[in-house]
């Protein structure tokens, strides 16, 4: 008798769980409707794709890379006429996602995010993969690095900074995201070309470095300028130089390193790659769709909203870039003592 009562209790609590669930399902209803519009999009004659595609992201939900992949998935599914799922598989500096993609068939239905940080990871051998394990499909966007100081800093231009550092080795507190990563690499290139000594203070993220710069805990930050967009626009933070090739349309007043006589053009790009062995015609099909996405006004708006530089490279161009970057970065890491001693 008692047991029946208990079971009734259990059932009733499960029913409530299902009720909560239906509320949730109700609000995700609009999503299924967008999926429907996707499937009514013009179907291509070629076989691929005939089933849903998965985009794997190696960073956590909500990161810039994740937002990039979600936006890309949203627009690509309309081109390919198949739904695209986005899965975040974090862990091991991207190694977990790479291992997962490698365990899936090379049929073009699993597409992995990729960024310029991959070339650091490969150069550093912190992931058990090589560039040849993947086919680089396309790069879409890139962000530069910039040297930033506070409004009240006496450093007015890049020359002041370099002069000061030459006179006072390690004299300024310089920091930015990560140790042995992109921004430190840019500073290292500048050190090489201008010949000065500096100590790097690594932070958890670009935002962390910006708050420390604003709070006066460090003197100079090397950051992706969009991390401090508000401060740059309001004048609370001044950018001394930026690592783009030509002046960035988003920061037209900031000189490039190149203009200042230091040939440093470095971009942290984002794109997609697939497992090696994926047939060339599938990659071509993907590239066709991606080319259309890149011209889509929705995409352009997203790029502007997020202050992303367009950085379109096809499979061949991107593969060459990756090879070159790995070599350059290995040299930097060796010199900085970041490589594992064997």
């Amino acid at each position: 008798m008692k047991r029946i009562v208990q079971v009734r209790k259990l059932v009733s609590s499960l029913v409530v769980m299902l009720l909560l669930l239906s509320v949730l399902a109700g609000c995700s209803g609009s999503k299924t409707s967008t999926d429907k519009t996707a499937s009514t999009a013009p179907q291509q004659k070629s076989g691929y794709p005939t089933k849903p595609i998965t985009f794997v992201v190696w960073s956590s939900a909500g990161s810039p890379l994740d937002l990039f992949m979600r936006k890309l998935a949203d627009l690509t599914k309309k081109e390919l006429g198949q739904p695209i799922m986005v899965e975040n598989r974090t862990g091991g500096n991207g190694a977990a996602a790479m291992a997962y993609v490698n365990s899936q068939p090379a049929d073009g239905y699993t597409v992995l995010s990729t960024t310029g940080s991959l070339t650091f990871a490969i150069a550093k051998e912190s992931v058990p993969f090589k560039a040849d394990d993947f086919i680089f499909v396309k790069s879409f966007q890139a962000e530069p690095s910039a040297i930033a100081v506070r409004k009240d800093s006496p450093l007015k231009a890049l020359e002041n900074f370099i002069d000061y550092m030459k006179k006072h080795p390690n004299g300024l507190k310089i920091g930015g995201y990560a140790s042995g990563g992109f921004h430190q690499y840019v500073l290292y290139r500048l050190q090489q070309k201008a010949n000065f000594e500096a100590t790097w203070i690594p932070f958890e993220g670009g935002a962390d470095a910006v708050t420390n710069l604003l709070g006066g805990h460090i003197d100079v930050a090397v950051i992706t300028p969009s991390t401090a967009l508000n401060q740059v626009q309001s004048g609370a933070i001044r950018l001394l130089a930026i690592s783009t090739d030509k002046r960035s349309p988003y920061f037209p007043d900031v000189p490039t390193f190149k203009e200042k006589g230091y040939d440093i053009v470095e971009m942290l790009w984002r794109g997609v790659m697939v497992k090696k062995g994926t047939p060339a015609e599938l990659i071509q099909r993907l590239n066709q769709a991606f080319d259309k996405v890149a011209q889509n006004p929705d995409w352009k708006k997203y790029m502007t909203d997020y202050k992303q530089e367009e950085y379109l490279l096809d499979s061949q161009g991107l593969t060459e870039l990756v090879k070159r970057e790995i070599a350059d970065r290995r040299a930097f890491l060796e010199k900085g003592g970041f490589l594992k001693k064997k």
Binding site: M17, L21, L24, A25, E87
Partner: peptide, 14 residues
């Protein structure tokens, strides 16, 4: 069934 509906269908956990 409940975990399938909740995690796979609604929350899209792969």
């Amino acid at each position: 069934v409940a975990s399938y509906l909740l995690f796979v269908v609604t929350l899209e956990v792969p």
